[in-house]
Structure formats: C-alpha cells, structure tokens
Design a protein around this nucleic acid. Structure first.
Lengths: 205, 205, 205, 205
DNA sequence: CGCTAACCGAGACGGTACGTCCCGTCTTTAC
DNA sequence: GTAAAGACGGGACGTACCGTCTCGGTTAGCG
C-alpha cells in the first residue's frame, strides 16, 4: 500500500533500506493511530499528523500518496490477518478463526474507521478502487481457501460453493458494521458460522 | 431535520408558509440526491448543489445549517418505503424475491450509488447514522419476517436464526457491491439462497 | 437627495403626503445618525439601520436608492449651522472662541464620531463629497472672516494669509483628532493660536 | 505593517529569508497599486488582487492580515519619507522639504486614498488605531525634531512649541485633503511654512 | 364609516466578497 | 543528499450584507 503510485521499487545502489525510512514510517504510523483516536477519521489532518510525529509534511507525502493511503497503511499494521493454521485444527476451526478475526477488526471502531472512507474513495477513483478491491480479494482468498480445503477434506458439505460461502460469512459482518449501529459481536461468530455452513455436530452425510 | 437549530416552530402571524420556501427546499433536495449519486458524499459541495439547483449558496445556508444537515435532510426524503410484500407463494419464493430485489438494486449503478455516500456520511455524523440505520432496519425487517414465517411454517430448518439468516442473504450482496469490482448478479441469487438456507430439494427433517 | 433615481414627483390626487412616509423617513434618518456614531460608516449596515429604526429593510429601499443615498440624506440633516458670531471683543478673542468651539466638538467623542464616517463616505461617493466639502467650507468661512477682519483692523500681522491661517488653526485640531489617540485639549487652544498668529503681547508692527 | 499581528520577528535559524516570500510580496504589492488605480479603494478586492498578481488568495492572507493591511502596506512602499538631511541646508529648508513631502503624498490620489480608510478603521478597531497612531507619530517625529533643532540653533523663534508647530504645518495639509475638494498644492507649501514659523527674511530677534 | 390603494414588516432570494482551513505540490535551507 | 520547514495555488467552507422581490397585514383618507 505504501506509495502504491510509485511503480518502481527503486532498489537504489543496493537493496539496502535506509534505516531512517523505517524509523520515519514507524513514528508517523503511530501518530496516525493516536490522531485517529483523538480526532476521529474525519478530524485527522495530514498537518496534525506531521506535527504530532515531529515530521515535516513533505516527509509524509514522500512515503504515502495521500491522506487515505496514510491512514489505510497505518491501520494495516494493526490488522495482521492470522497466517494459515500451520496444520493443527479442523477446517471449521480455521474458518472460525478467520471470521473471528474479521469480526474483531470490524468491531474495533479505530480499525474499521477507514473502511467507509475507502469505500467512498473507491466509488469515485478508479485506481483506489483497483487497489481496494484487490486488497479485499487477497484477504478473502484465505478464507475461500480454508473453505475449499474443508470441502475437499469432506469436512464441509459438498454442495457448498466456497466463494459464496465465504461471502455468507463475512458479508453479514460487513453489513452489521456499515448498515447498522451495532457491529456483530465476536460472540456471535459461532452462530454465524453455523448459519452459513451448518451446525457443527450435524451430520450431512 | 431542516434547521434543527431552531427549536421554536414560530407559526408567524398565521400558519401560512411562503411557497418560495417549499419550492426552494424541493429543488435543492433533488439537486443533493443527484449530486450524491454523481460525486459521492465526499465530492458533494454546497456550491455544486447550489449551481445544480439553480439557487444561490446563501439560500441553501438559509435553510440548512451546513453541508451535513443538507445531505441528511435530503436523504430523509428517500424514506418512502414500498408497502410490505402482499404475500403469496412459499416462504422460499418470497425470500428469493426479496433477495433478488436487493441484488437488483445493488446491481444498478445509479440506484446503489448513494449507498457508499450514505455509509461515509453516517460515519461522520450521528444524526445521519441514526436515520440511515433505522432506514436499513426497516427494510431488513421484511426479509427477517419472511424467514421467520418460513421457519414457523416448518418450511425452513428450525436451527436457523432469522436475523442471522437475513444477514447471510443480504450481507454478501452488499459485500460484493462495496468491496469488489463486480456486484453479485441476480442469476446468482438462487445459489446464494441455497448457501444460506440450504438447497431447495434437500430434506432436513 | 431622497430617491434621486425616481424622476417623477408623483403629485397624487392632491399634494398631501402620507404621514407614514414622513414618520418613516424621520425615524430612519435618526437611526442612521446613531448607527454612524456607533459603528462608523464602514460598520453601518442597511439591516442594522432597519433594525434600529424598527423598520423593514424594504421600507428603506422604498425611500432611498442605496446605502450611500441613505447616509448622504441623513447627514444633510446635520447641516443646521448656528448663525454668525454676533461680534464683540477683539479679533483674537473671537478667533480663539471659534477655535475653542471646534476643539470642543472634536474633543467630544460623540460629536466627532461622524467625522471619520463622513470622510470615508466622501471618499467613495461624489455627491456626499460635494455636500461634505461645501458644509465644511461654510463653517470655515466664519473663521476666515474673523481672521481677515483682524488683519484689516491691524490687530493681526499683515503678512498673514487668512485662508492659510484658518487652516493652521483648525488643521492641527483635526489632525490630533484623526491621526493620534489624543484630541487637542481646549486648554491648548491658546497656545495653538499663539503658534499660528503669534504670541499675544508681542508687537509685530 | 506586514503581519503586524506577529509580534516576534522570528529570524528563524539564521536571518535568511525565503526568496519566494520577497517575490510574492513584490508582485502582490504591485497588483494592489494597479488595482487601486483601476478600481479605486472601494472597488479593490482581495480576490481581484490575487488574480491580477497570479497568486492564490491564501497566499495573500499568509502575508497580510486583511484587505486594509494589504493596501496600507502596498502604499507604504510608495511613500518613503526622505531621510533626515545629511546636514546640508538650514532648519527651514529641512522643514520645508518634509512638509513638501507630506503635501505631495496628500496630493497624490492613490497615495492618500488609504488615509480615510485607515481613519475609519482606526475609529472602530483599537488595534488598528494603535498601529495607525504610532505610525503617524513616527512620521511626525522627524518634523518635530527638525523644528526643535531649528529652535535650538536659534534659527527659529524661541517662543515656538515644536509639537504644536509641527501640527500647524501638517494639520492644514491633512485638512485640505480630507475636508475640502482640493488638496493643498505643493506650491503653497512655502506660504504655509511662512504662516506657521514666520516669513523667511523677517528678523525676530 | 367603509373601501381601496398605498405603505408597511418580514424576510426569502441570487449574488459577491470576506477571511479560514486544509489539501497536495514544490522550493529552500539546514544538517 | 535527505529531511524539516513551510510557502505556494487551489478551492470549499460558512458568514455577512447587498439590493431585489414577494408576501399578507395595516392604515390613511376619499367617497
């Protein structure tokens, strides 16, 4: 996401990364999160972030394309999707974990605050849309894969479409976050999973 | 919502109201909706609304406190819901019809253009949020009722939660519209319903 | 000056004037003068005048072409000059008295408040300028005449130019009122006169 | 006058100043003078100045507090008081030169156009008054000093009060500019000086 | 003494300029 | 040679008045 507009990866002389860059990005990202907490998304200003981070405004624009990019990137740091379960649990466990993670993100006001802004921005800007949709597809794919694996393993009913089932799991969470005043609680995730892929101990064979 | 800051209703000498006021409010509200669809909430400008409505900027500020008040009021005009389904056919048919209707709406660029705008606006303003969430709840209720009736009639599996099931039906459609580049096609509605409430000819009893 | 734009004098049926018109004009003119004193010319607003006069804005525009016309007309009411000095005493005494009078007027905040307003207005509007300058010339003439009489009588040095000397007497008072924070006190009038026409007991013959 | 609201002179790290600032100020000041000539003081608009200077409106407000500050500053550039005579002429010569300069300024419609506006503004705003009066005092001081030096040197009659005499010299010029339709011509300066401090070749000893 | 014409208040209207704010870009200078 | 500082053009914000324009309601004075 960082500097998505810059196509070249500029490997510079070698592929060493200037440690100052890393440092700058970290303090700015922290400032963004603090500012988000203090002023909300609408009240967040590039200038206020720069001031809080003790950084020049131009420095921010050197690393991020614009306000949205800045915020989205900062939030991404907080929102590390759990890697695929090394092998451990059942497919259902893994699915539940991913859905739980999404519900948690959508339940955190700070974390989910950029989603509406990104949706809006994507609506009016093709390149934002392209990024945003691709990003979502990536995230979604993990879940789709887990579902497909569950079907493959005979753990989930064979009539399921993995794509549609994934949507049936995360769509409701998105809906609750955006269209109602009350995000889906993580406690409801189990019920949601049961609704979408059937109750746990019910045999479908 | 109009001039929410003025608490007294002050009926003036009689309760006649200047017809110019009515007229102005109507054309401005229409301009707001058109502008929302074209430019989104973030791109909506008081000046552009004024220009589109053929009205002075000061006239707008005479009637609405600020940009937010203007948009919220205009959107309230949309709250003209069609009466409840006249009923007929199986519960599944009725549900499919409702879901189909929602998918159609979300598939129409023009119709669904205000949704991102509303989501964004609701995020920033509590009174818009209040209206928007209530409006969505009303719409959703029709589907929830149909599902509950289906369960009651033994037509749908008893383990379903009608609220969650409704979300599992419309959530995916919303998700596809907002988070991907491709809204759910109406052709997929049958599959979606099958995913959420089970395939049609499968007995669960 | 009133309604200079209206060429017809509308004699109506007879030449009776509706008393409401007279009344309106009077209260509005008074409101203008009060407003000028309080807020200055730049701060004078048609709306504030209307409010102060307890009159509708449209009523004002019914009688005066615009803001300038309104102010110019109101100021013309001030043109009520006291008759010429009844004469008596030496020329110097008479001069001192006139200068003292001017210094008193300029020292009274209330009395002198319209001067800056008039100056400003004259700067912007030729007809106000014409009135204002003529009015000032009239007032000044009394002093010029007194000085000329003093020279004629041999009471003042013959090398004096009566016009310039008059200016040397009232110019400083105006300057102090407008360009400094402290108007010339009346106690300084004697010194001022001495500066302009020489000390009293000094012989110039 | 520029940014009079900023009390500290903040020389930054060193006393270098950004050349863009100098450039901007110059082109804007020129645009102000052109605009004054074309549209007059009342017709001068910050936006028109910005457009003429090819500069953003915000840039103007970055350098000047408001319209008045902008105009006053621009005019100040034109109105450089002659430095104190290195030593050369007599006190009378020096005085005549200063008075001549003031008369010239007051005779130039463009130069003197802001005086009424400033007077008006000072009347209603304490901080403008403070600046304006201090500025005038500074200007006046040069003349007062020259007069005092002349008295000290025995070149001017000892009975003169240098402050009052200065007022007797510039007061008339101000009066003519503001209160009559005809500013004092520079040709009359010699006569004016003669009136205030006595004819040149007359002995007073 | 009632009618009608005018005058009135209230204030909505289209405009225009104000001065503020923040965006994202670009320039200069310091380290 | 990179980063901080911040000037810059741009453009929307919300405010304040301008002068125009409906509105009904009220009042004067003729008939």
């Amino acid at each position: 996401m960082v500097n998505a507009s810059t196509p070249d990866e500029r490997p510079r002389s070698s592929d060493r990364i200037d440690p100052r860059i890393t440092q700058t990005r970290r303090v700015v990202r922290e400032a963004v999160l603090d500012e988000l907490a203090d002023a909300g998304f609408g009240g967040l200003t590039v200038e206020s972030v720069a001031a809080r981070a003790g950084v020049g405004k131009s420095t921010i624009y050197r690393h991020w394309r614009d306000r949205l990019d800045l915020v989205a990137d900062a939030l991404e740091q907080l929102n590390r999707q759990p890697g695929p379960q090394p092998d451990g649990g059942t497919a259902r466990k893994q699915i539940e974990q991913l859905v739980h993670h999404f519900a948690t993100a959508m339940g955190d006001p700070r974390l989910s605050a950029t989603v509406p802004a990104l949706i809006e921005a994507a609506e009016r800007d093709a390149s934002i849309a392209e990024f945003f949709h691709r990003y979502n597809a990536q995230r979604r794919q993990t879940l789709v894969d887990a579902i497909a694996a569950g079907i493959e393993a005979g753990e989930l009913p064979g009539h399921l479409d993995s794509e549609l089932t994934a949507l049936a799991l995360i769509g409701p969470i998105l809906y609750r976050r955006l269209m109602t005043g009350e995000p889906l609680s993580t406690a409801q995730v189990t019920d949601l999973v049961a609704t979408a892929i059937g109750p746990e101990h019910r045999a479908w064979a």
